[in-house]
């Protein structure tokens, strides 16, 4: 099992672009959480997460995004997920979280 996840954060004036590469599971989720949560605590901030290079995600990874979304509600920031691969997008759809988390599925990578 590949347990690597690369997290690249590019901060701008009122937003941050978080690019992820690898797999999000119980082993790598803490790394994502540590990078993502502080960004969502900045009031008015837009946190855009690019999942184009995320090849696998499990329920623990989904939990990180739920936690991040909850944080945006508390801190008046925004979370947006873009370029999800089909396999990852399906996880959001199955759980119904695609209707709650802003997901830009118009530009989407394949598996």
């Amino acid at each position: 099992m590949n347990i690597n996840l690369e997290v690249e954060v590019v901060n701008q004036e009122s937003s941050a672009l978080v690019s992820l590469t690898g797999e999000i599971d119980a082993y790598t989720a803490p790394k994502l959480k540590d990078a993502l949560l502080p960004l969502t605590k900045r009031e008015g901030y837009l946190v855009e997460v690019n999942l184009d290079k995320v090849t696998y995600m499990d329920s623990t990874g989904l939990g990180v995004f739920v936690g991040a979304l909850k944080s945006t509600k508390e801190h008046n920031s925004q979370l947006k997920l873009v370029q999800l691969q089909d396999r990852v997008l399906r996880l959001f759809e199955i759980t119904g979280l695609d209707s709650i988390i802003t997901i830009d599925s118009t530009v989407r990578g394949g598996n």
């Binding site: 739920v66 759980t95 119904g96 979280l97 709650i100």
Partner: peptide, 27 residues
């Protein structure tokens, strides 16, 4: 938020019992 359960009638017609809310414990 659970994977859709499958219902199949006596004629083999199927339908999915899809999610209507987020998982419990989320919001």
């Amino acid at each position: 938020g659970h994977p859709p359960a499958l219902y199949q009638d006596s004629h083999g017609q199927q339908k999915e019992l899809n999610t209507s809310t987020p998982p419990i414990g989320t919001f």
